[in-house]
Design a binder for these strands. Sequence first.
DNA 1: ATAAGGCCTAAGAG
DNA 2: ACTCTTAGGCCTT
Length: 299
Amino acid sequence: METGTISIDECSGGFDLYRTLESGQTYLWRRSDGEMYGGTPASDAWYTTVVSSGGTGDGDVIRVRTRDGRLEWESTTDAEALVRRLLRLDDDLEEIVAAGPDDPLLHEAYEAHHGMRLVQDPPFGCLISFICSAQMRVSRIHTMVTTLAREYGDAVAFDGETYQAFPTPDQLATATEAELRELGLGYRAPYVVRTAEMVANGEAHPEAARGLEYEDAREYLTQFVGVGDKVADCVLLFSLGFDEAVPLDTWIKSAIEEYYPDCDRGSYAATSRALRDSLGGEYAGYAQTYVFHHLRTGE
DNA sequence: ATAAGGCCTAAGAG
DNA sequence: ACTCTTAGGCCTT
């Protein structure tokens, strides 16, 4: 086992592990002391994920927790750089907040959820997670993703326990619609199967959107089955580094009605563009995530 | 390009 | 206990 610690003091703008991983951005981590989204974790609880080793062999297990102002990690590999990337610890959050617009709702959200960062999920797992997210509560999305990992992913041993990796495209493409309906995915079942097949057979890959202009990248992702504008924006924001992406979900739409009525331009693209400008452009997605979480939790 | 209707189902509200 | 509604939309027509 390899271990290490990262000083949270050195993370500009702070870092809150709980807020980052339980804010509905990622569904690829599990908490050691029970179900997520049901209250704050125990102070010594670990969050664990399994990432592809990038080649042959099993994936790497990574677990993290915060203790005494430091982020502790334990892993099957030297994971510091990976942890920094997945949790975006090198983002200058203070600068991002300062660069945002002088907006009362945004100030309130930044204040209430200090230290929440964007995540950077692996693209395929993120894509499937948000296909599952349609009309679904965060706790159920997490259950569905956990079930997919259990049924189709590799088991990886670490420190006397077994963890389930999220399935590869090839693995998930072996699933049938009937199986996934049986597992509770409902009408999303065929979407997941067909998208996994598209990635597995090389027809398209979410990673390929990375090099495109923002709106072209969103258009590219919508070719996957079960992916509309909103899900595409989530993948761009939470996985592919498009910090300007602003997913228009039900919470943000209600925020537009109440706080940004001028941004309602009819179509998704035009409204998204207007809200992106109102939220500061380059890091609009960061602002969106704070506003979304602020409204959803009512905190 | 935009507008309705249908869709799975667990879990909370009434 | 039982019904009704809702949940970070998408696909087809």
